[in-house]
């Protein structure tokens, strides 16, 4: 929809000074979907020219402006044994309740910074030990795990005017084996629970990540394959009685039930793989 209070669109390449009433414009698919009467300027990231996806010796760098469609189409370069990309990227991109047409312009950075509980890329990045590169207004730079950037439903640790430049996924996380589970009230609906589990084939460590059913990402590392009881206990303790999301996309009791159920499914699947291997 038209954002009628917006007076100016500034090219972010010229590093405009941040003012009250400013917003970063990436894909615009959230900004233009609701009235934003508080906004006066949009700082347009559309011409930054950042490489959407860059493979480095350390892993994968995803630019904040990488679109969901670009991430969905990513194929690891030959010789890179990154099973995670095949197992998780596609399902997480398709976990959007929105249309593939929206994925053409919606961005990874926008999804993470909006920080909705159902944001699938928060789940993906948190599960893969993603680290955010944040650019401050004064030119400074800091790094922060994605799991800590998102502090609550729609809340982040971003400072005023701070910009998410990219997310770095370390190669060690991309080499892990992975599985995904999702629950929603209808097949193409908004995620009510989204769970990713990864296992390191070398040292056997586990990592279970939960979003959508919880108000902030919950990441549970395990030194060895957890028992059903240990996984359940760890989840209940990490989320707490008030940590389950309560909105029209699912009752908190149902979300809790589905989360525990799906976590156990993931545990069984990855344990079976382990034993099979």
């Amino acid at each position: 929809m038209d954002l009628t209070s917006v007076r100016e669109v500034c090219d972010a390449r010229h590093r405009p000074q941040w003012e009250a009433g400013d917003a970063w414009l990436a894909g615009g698919t959230y900004l233009f979907s609701e009235p934003q009467p508080q906004l006066r300027r949009l700082l347009d990231l559309g011409r930054m020219g950042w490489d959407a996806l860059r493979v480095t010796p350390g892993g994968l760098e995803i630019a904040a402006t990488c679109t969901i469609a670009q991430l969905n189409a990513f194929v690891p370069p030959e010789g890179m044994a990154w099973p995670v990309a095949g197992a998780l990227f596609g399902p997480c991109c398709r976990a959007f309740s929105s249309s593939f047409k929206v994925w053409n312009t919606a961005t990874v950075g926008g999804n993470i910074c909006l920080a909705l509980p159902a944001a699938p890329l928060v789940c993906l990045a948190a599960a893969l030990e993603g680290e955010c590169v944040l650019l401050a207004q004064n030119g400074g730079q800091r790094r922060m795990p994605v799991a800590r950037l998102v502090t609550g439903a729609g809340r982040t640790a971003l400072a005023e005017g701070e910009l998410l430049r990219s997310v770095l996924l370390p190669a060690r996380a991309l080499r892990r084996r992975a599985a995904v589970r999702r629950a929603a009230l209808r097949p193409q609906g908004r995620s009510a629970a989204l769970l990713l589990a990864t296992v390191d084939p070398g040292d056997g460590t586990w990592r279970v990540t939960v979003t959508a059913s919880t108000t902030r990402p919950v990441v549970l590392p395990f030194d060895r394959p957890p028992t059903a009881q240990a996984l359940r206990d760890a989840l209940e303790q990490a989320v707490g009685p008030d940590g389950w999301v309560d909105d029209v996309h699912g009752h908190p009791a149902w979300r809790r039930h589905m989360t525990l159920l799906l976590a156990e499914e993931l545990r069984t699947e990855l344990t079976a793989d382990e034993e099979g291997a």
Partner: peptide
């Protein structure tokens, strides 16, 4: 007017988008 119904779909350089969300 919020990217959900698709009635405003157009192609931009051949790519389908919801024009209500496209600056």
């Amino acid at each position: 007017d919020a990217g959900d119904c698709g009635a405003c779909t157009v192609h931009v350089d051949g790519m389908p988008v919801h024009s209500c969300l496209y600056p």
